[in-house]
Design a protein around this nucleic acid. Structure first.
Lengths: 222, 222, 222, 222
DNA sequence: TATGAATGAGCCTTCATTCAT
DNA sequence: CATGAATGAAGGCTCATTCAT
C-alpha cells in the first residue's frame, strides 16, 4: 500500500540530503516497506537490516534519510494519520445537510478504519515507543480527526438542530473516534456476524440515537 | 499494586520449584514488579536484569519460576484480566432487576477500566508479543468479560424487557467492552471535562439509549 | 549397564559421608547414570540437574558424594577402564600356550571394545576435560591395558618363540590397543561388511602376521 | 599454522558479507585462531569473546561471517580434512609402481598425521558437537581419505599384483586410516622410542606384511 | 549520494555450586 | 544424610549505528 507523506514530515526529520524530491521519494519507499514490516513483525522485531533489505537499499542509505530508527516509526505513524485525514477531507463538502454530513463523515471514517485496520492496531502498539516530542505530534493528528466530528456536531448545534453542551459534544466526538477503532480491535469477532456496511449501520444508529435522546426537543428533526 | 494470580496460571507456566505456595508468592512478586516496569518502560525496554534487580532476586531465581521472558508477559496479561474479572464477579448477583444488573455491571466495569487504565493500554501494546498459544488464552479472557455483558442482556431479553436479535446483542456487548477501554485511551482528554462518574453516566445513557431505541415496543419498560 | 567401581576411586575423590558402603553404592548410581547420559548427550550437554533428576537424587545429595562435576567425569572414565581391565584379567590364565594366550587376550580385548564401543568413543571425547592429575591416572589405566599385551609378547619372547626388540614389542602392544578402538571408531562402516568375530579374525591375522614376519627364524613355530 | 579453506565452505556457511574474497580472508583468520584455541582449551572452553579478542575483531564482525558458534567448529573440522586431503593429492601421481604408490601415500599420510597430531585429536573430541548435517559432511571427508587407500589397493589388484576380496580391502583401508591417527593418540609414548620415520617404517612393514600374507600367490612380487 | 563492513553494548538464558533447613 | 531454593558469573548472539570508500 502506498502511504502518503505530507510535506511537514520532510522538515520534522532532518537529513543530509539536499535534493528534497529525492528525500520524499526515498522516505516513501522507507515508509511503505516499514508499514508492511511493522504490521507483520512489530517494530522491535523489524531490524534495520530486514528493513533495508526489503526496501532494496543499503544500511548507509537508510541513515542518510533518517537519523534514528524511531524516525522511521514516526514517519510511519504520521503517514497513517495522514491517510485517514486525507480520506476524511474529501467527504466534508459532499453534503449540505448537517446530519447528512455527520452520517457521511462517520461512514467514511469507519470505512477508513476498516481499510486501515492493521495500521490502527499498529498505532496502539507502537505510539509509546516514540519520544515525547513525536508522541505529541501524533496526539495532535489524532485530535485533528476527532475535531472533524466535533466540528460537524458543533455545526449541527449552530444550525439549531441539536442542543448539546460542549462536554457532551466532546464526549461524542471522542467516542466516535474510538468506535471506528473498535472495528479494528474486534474485527476477528465482528466479521463473523457483520459486514463492514452492517457495522456502520449499527454504529450510526447507536450514535445518532444518542444524539437524539440527549437532545430532547429537536429529536424529531434528526 | 498487588495483582491477583489465579491457580490455573500455576499450571500453564512450568517451573523447577516444587513448593507450590512459594511459586505463587514469587510469581506474585514477579508480576507486581513486571506490571509496574512494563507500564513504565514497555516490555522490550524492561530487561530481565532490571526486572530482577527491582524484584530483589537473582537472574537465576527468576528463571526458576518461569522459563522465558514472555512467560512473565503472559503472567502479567493474565493477571490483569483476572483482576478485571474478579471485580465484575462480585457485581453480578447484587441486583435483582436485570436492567439494574446491566447498569451496575457496566458501572463496575468502567470503574475497573479507570483503575487499570495503564494496564489496559499495556494490553493493547503487548498482547501481540505473546506466542499464539498464549494469545488465544488472553483472547478467551477478553471474551469472558464481554460474555458477562452479553449474558446480562440476554437475560433482559429472556425477561421480555428487550427484543434484540443475537447480532445486535453481540454488537452491543463488544461495544461496551471497548467503551470501557475508551476511557483508558482518552483519559488524557476526558479528565479535562469529566470525572469517571460523569463518564460512566454518559456512557450508560449512551448504551441504554441504544437498547431502548433498537427495541421499539418495550421501550417504556426500560 | 552396571559399571564397576574399584576401591581406589573411593579414596581419590573426597566426600563428607562417613558410611563407605553408602558412598560406593551412591557413586555407582551416579556413574551408571552419568555414563548413559554422557554417551547420549556429551559431558557438557549433561547438566547436573539432568543428571540428578535421572539418578533420582537431589542436587545437594550429588554434591555430598563428589565435589565437582569433573569428579563425576573422572569416576566415569575410571569405571570404563576398570571394566575393560576386569574383562581381560579373567583371560590371562586360561591358556598355557603363549601364542594362544596372546590370541585369547586379543580376542577378549576386541570383544570388550565392541561391548564398550560407545564408552571408548566417550573416552576420546572427554579425557582432556579432566584436570592433569586425573588425566595422568587415566593414562596409567590405558597403559596397564597395553601392558597386558606387552607382557604376553615378552613372555613369548622369553619362551624363545619370538625374537623382537623392545621397540617393536612396544609398537605392537600400542597398536593392538588402538586396533581395538578402531572397531569403535569405524563401527558404522565395518558392521556393513563384518561381524565382530570376522573383524577379530582379520585383525588377529594382521597382528600375528606381523609378529611372524618381523621375527624371521621362529616363523614356523608360530 | 595457516589452514586451507576450500571454496565449497564458502557456500555451506552463510554470511552477510558480499565481498567473497573478504569472506575467504576473514574466515581463514577465524579458522586459524579457532584451531589454535580449540586445541588449547577445547571447543566449549573457548568463548566467542576469547576467540574474537584473539583474532582481533569484534563480536559483531565474527557473526557477519558465520551465524553460529558451531559454524566455526565446522569450518575448523573441514579445514583440517582439507589440509590432509591436499597433502595426499600431490602424492598420487608421483610414482608409477602401484606398490610404490601405496608406500608413498601411506608415508605422506603418516607425515600429515604427525604434523596435524593435535588437529586429529581435536577431531575425535569435537565432531559429535556438530549438527547431524555437518557430521555427515565430515564423515564424507574422512571416507574420501580412506578411499585414497582403497583406490590404490584396488589398483594393485587390477594390476594382478594382489588378490584380495573387497571385504579385506575395506578392512585394510580403514585400518591404515586409523593407524595414522594412532601416532597422534600415542605420540606421548611413541616419541620415547621412535622418530616419525621409524614409526612409518614399522607401520609400512606391518601393512605390507599383511597384504603379502593374505594374498598367497603373488607374494613374491610384492 | 550510496555502499556495506565493522562495531560493541547489551540482551536473554544456563548451570555448577552453595547452604539453610 | 538429604533436600532444593538461591545464586551470579559467563555464555552466545543481535542490532542500531558509524564511517571509510
Amino acid at each position: 500500500m502506498r502511504m502518503t507523506l505530507n510535506d511537514s514530515d520532510v522538515f520534522e526529520i532532518s537529513t543530509q540530503i539536499k535534493d528534497q524530491e529525492l528525500v520524499k521519494q526515498r522516505r516513501r519507499q522507507i515508509v511503505d516497506t516499514a508499514v508492511k514490516l511493522f504490521i507483520k513483525h512489530g517494530y522491535h522485531q523489524t531490524s534495520t537490516r530486514l528493513l533495508t533489505r526489503e526496501i532494496g537499499i543499503s544500511t548507509g542509505t537508510l541513515y542518510e534519510y533518517i537519523s534514528t530508527k524511531v524516525d522511521v516509526l514516526y514517519l510511519v505513524c504520521r503517514a497513517i494519520y495522514t491517510d485517514v485525514q486525507e480520506s476524511l477531507e474529501n467527504v466534508r463538502s459532499s453534503s449540505e445537510d448537517a446530519k447528512g454530513v455527520l452520517k457521511e463523515i462517520v461512514r467514511e471514517y469507519f470505512y477508513v478504519c476498516d481499510r486501515l485496520s492493521d495500521h490502527i492496531l499498529l498505532l496502539y502498539q507502537v505510539t509509546h515507543f516514540l519520544p515525547k516530542r513525536f508522541q505529541k505530534k501524533i496526539l495532535d493528528a489524532e485530535l485533528e480527526i476527532t475535531q472533524l466530528f466535533l466540528d460537524t456536531i458543533e455545526q449541527l448545534k449552530a444550525e439549531g438542530k441539536l442542543d448539546l453542551d460542549g462536554q457532551t459534544i466532546n464526549f461524542i466526538g471522542h467516542t466516535i473516534s474510538v468506535l471506528g477503532h473498535t472495528w479494528a480491535f474486534r474485527r476477528w469477532y465482528f466479521t463473523k456476524y457483520f459486514t463492514i456496511e452492517q457495522y456502520i449501520e449499527k454504529q450510526t444508529e447507536f450514535i445518532l440515537g444518542f444524539l437524539a435522546e440527549e437532545n430532547i426537543k429537536p429529536v424529531e428533526e434528526i
